[in-house]
Simulated assay, not measured.
Amino acid sequence: MLNQQQQSRYDRQVAGWLLLCAAVIFGMITLGGVTRLTGSGLSMVEWKPLMGVIPPIGEEAWQETFDKYKQYPEYHKVNRGMDLDGFKSIFMYEYLHRVLGRVIGVLFFVPMVFFAVKGRVRAGMMPKLWILFALGGLQGLLGWYMVKSGLVDNPRVSQYRLTAHLGLAVAIYAYMLWVAFDLLFPGKPGKHPRAGFSRVLVGLIYLMILSGGLVAGTRAGFAYSTWPLMGTSFIPAGLYAMEPAWLAMFEDITTVQFNHRMFAYLLFVLVHLFVWLSWRNGLGSRGKLAMVLLLAALWLQVVLGIGTLLLHVPVWLAAAHQAGAVLLLSATLFSSHYLVKQAS
């Protein structure tokens, strides 16, 4: 039977491992954005869960891999005339993305087994860890399901599958953070008056990230490179012009970008309101730090978002904008956990 001091030490070890895994997943999400932005996601036309970790070795192997790529529509409709060196460039982004996914699997599974065998996992925690592992496996399958949607006549992945793939990655990351916070900050009985507001905010920011997935999948970010106006007006012509109108929310680039902007404005107001109300109701030192970090993440994301639009979606800035969204979610989770657990 572990005493409280030993259990706290083991909890910190498990939490440290989970935070490391979450950091690598954060990198995975960012690399996924770069892979999409560079048009590299369809360069690997086969899914080999085990042998796929070995890249082509030698010019003959590279040429064979390139010849397979040439059999698919993206080469003929987008990259016709690409040479082998150009193919190697896009291939490596997708290859690194897939290999990092496998690394995350090993980085999670091996320590999980070690901690379980050594009896260092707190009672009731193992089911949560198994859920995270199962979701990670599902994420790999969903990634290939997404890629398959682009290996057809239209060489672009489905925005629905892309958004689902992004959404599951972010959900795994968020749940992992929350479990780590539970171990690091056990908390006290009772909740802060703004605990409910914090949970709503977490949900809304998650939906905002899904909205960003639709923007990426439809390439709606390229439609209007002006701000605060969209073209010559705040409300552009042609909103919800599709039949049926609700489908425009997911497929019409003007509507998709407009909705993403409106969602951002709403969250900008709600986050400031949330911080103000939480501060008025009283916060401990960690709570105050959480609110400061939340505001900093929000303003950083605003600057990144506007810059991405005005500079017409450069790869480095668009990838930073996607990473900024995950940082904002992280700060919101940190704030919410404090308020829900009422830890000082």
Rank of each mutant, 00 (worst) to 15 (best):
Q4S: 15
Q5L: 09
Q6T: 14
Q6W: 02
Q7G: 06
R9Q: 14
Q13G: 02
Q13M: 13
Q13C: 02
V14P: 12
A15D: 10
L18M: 14
I25F: 02
I29W: 00
I29C: 00
S40T: 06
L42V: 03
S43N: 09
M44W: 03
V45W: 08
M51F: 09
P55N: 04
G58R: 06
E64M: 00
T65H: 04
F66L: 03
K68E: 15
K70T: 02
E74N: 12
K77T: 08
V78Y: 00
V78E: 13
N79Q: 10
G81E: 00
L84R: 00
G86K: 08
R98K: 07
V99R: 06
G101S: 06
F108Y: 14
V113M: 14
F115I: 02
K118Q: 15
R120H: 14
M125P: 02
M126K: 09
I131E: 10
L132N: 12
F133C: 09
L135T: 08
G136Y: 11
Q139K: 11
M146N: 07
K148R: 14
G150F: 06
L151C: 04
V157Q: 07
S158Q: 09
A169Q: 01
A180M: 04
A180G: 11
F185S: 01
G190V: 00
P193I: 00
A195F: 11
F197N: 13
V202H: 01
I205A: 13
L214V: 08
A216D: 04
A223P: 00
S225V: 05
S225K: 04
T226I: 05
L229R: 15
G231E: 12
T232R: 10
P236V: 01
Y240T: 01
A245P: 05
A245S: 11
W246V: 15
W246Q: 04
F250D: 08
H260V: 09
R261A: 10
L266P: 07
L273D: 09
N281R: 13
N281V: 02
G282R: 07
G282D: 01
L283R: 11
M291P: 11
L294A: 01
W299N: 15
L311Q: 13
V313P: 11
L317H: 06
A318I: 06
A319E: 05
G324E: 03
G324W: 03
L328W: 14
L329T: 13
F334S: 01
S336T: 09
H337A: 02
V340L: 14
